[in-house]
Each structure stands twice: as C-alpha cells, then as structure tokens.
C-alpha cells in the first residue's frame, strides 16, 4: 500500500515490468495503470497497421496479457511483449478481413474530410467535434492516406516509433529484425511521408 501511494504521489513513473509483477502478485490496480498507459498508443498502432477494428485488437491484446500473465517471466520488456501480441493479432485480423463483406466503422468513407464511418456515426449522434479544426482533420486525412501508401514493414516501424513510442531496439525485438534494418525502414518511411505531406510541413 505504501509503495502504491508513493507511486501515485511520486513524480517518477513505475516501470511496466514492476507494475506487471504487482499484478502477478494479485494487485488488479497495476493492470489498470498499464491499460491506461498503453491502450491508446496500442490502438493507434493497430489502426495504422491496417486493422479494421483497432479496439478489438486492443481488447484481445490485453485479454491475452491477463490470461497469460503467469507465463511472463520478465525476460523481455512488457511493452515489447504487448506489441508483439498486438502485431500478431493484426496479422490474423487482416487475414480474416479479406473475406469480410460488411463495411468497417474504422474504414475511410471516401468523403472530403476522410472521416471514418465510426466517426461519422458518432458525430451524427452526439454532435460536432469542436476540438478538431479543419486543418488538423485535413492533415489527418492526408497522413492516413500517406501511411496507407507505405509498405507494411515501413508503416509498421513508423507507427511503432512515432505513434506508440517504442525504441528501435524494442521494435527490432518485436518485429524480429536487425536494428539497422529497422532504422533503414524508418528512414524510407520518413522520406516518403515527407514527400507525400510536403504541403503540410
């Protein structure tokens, strides 16, 4: 309890591995912290990875973490483990989505603002999104389109680095590649995105 209070009141965040170790010892609040820390970046990665339903990826990934928590021995970083699980789920989901007939809520609708079907349904039901101005939405659309043009390997590396915040070493471990190869993919992704988004830079 004291350590938990120190964690909450202290400035220095507790590492993922420490939190997960606490969860393995029966502390459910540690998993709440982990979820709040990684859910959104993980969703962004899943979305950029091409998953039709990134929330499902996030949910399945965390459920697998909860289910297989006893097998995690701390030999790898928790974040690397989580994103490896999410990456495999994305691969499985993309294989399943090839045979999907219905439209996805996360798929672009083809309108001028390039909003997804889910965004449109939410905005229509709740109201306008006042927090997002037109420029941001345009850049978001252009960015999504440019990311869609990238090869899978480059898009994956860029998303893991820029959207999820993994280090190149972690990306190399999650993707089972050499670190220099990961950096080379990163450079080509940057180069193509710069060319595609030159109007916004």
């Amino acid at each position: 309890m004291l350590s938990w209070l120190l964690m909450v009141l202290g400035d220095e965040p507790i590492s993922d591995e420490t939190l997960f170790s606490r969860y393995q010892n029966g502390d459910a609040r540690a998993m709440t912290t982990l979820y709040d820390r990684h859910a959104r970046p993980l969703r962004a990665f899943a979305q950029q990875r091409g998953a039709a339903r990134p929330d499902d990826i996030v949910q399945d990934a965390f459920l697998r973490v909860v289910r297989n928590g006893a097998s995690f021995q701390g030999q790898a970083k928790f974040r690397t483990w989580l994103y490896t699980i999410a990456r495999n789920l994305c691969v499985d989901a993309s294989r399943r989505d090839r045979f999907r007939s219905g439209p996805s809520l996360d798929a672009p609708t083809g309108s001028e603002d390039n909003r997804t079907l889910g965004d449109r349904i939410a905005n229509d039901s709740i109201g306008t999104d006042a927090s997002r101005n037109l420029a941001d939405r345009q850049f978001q659309s252009a960015f999504d389109a440019a990311m869609a043009q990238l090869p899978d390997e480059q898009r994956e590396v860029f998303a893991l680095r820029e959207l999820s915040g993994l280090s190149f070493a972690e990306i190399a471990e999650a993707t089972a590649c050499n670190e220099n190869t990961v950096k080379s993919r990163m450079r080509y992704a940057l180069k193509q995105l710069r060319e595609a988004l030159s109007d916004f830079l």
């Binding site: 459910a28 998993m31 709440t32 859910a39 459920l63 909860v66």
Partner: peptide, 16 residues
C-alpha cells in the same frame, strides 16, 4: 473495451 479488460484483470489478479 476498458471495462472488459479491467474485469478480466480483476479476476486474473484473484487467481494469481
């Protein structure tokens, strides 16, 4: 998603 994950986490913590 959050509620599902945290419920499962609570059950998992009890099991652990």
């Amino acid at each position: 998603v959050r509620s599902v994950v945290l419920t499962a986490a609570a059950l998992g913590a009890q099991e652990h």
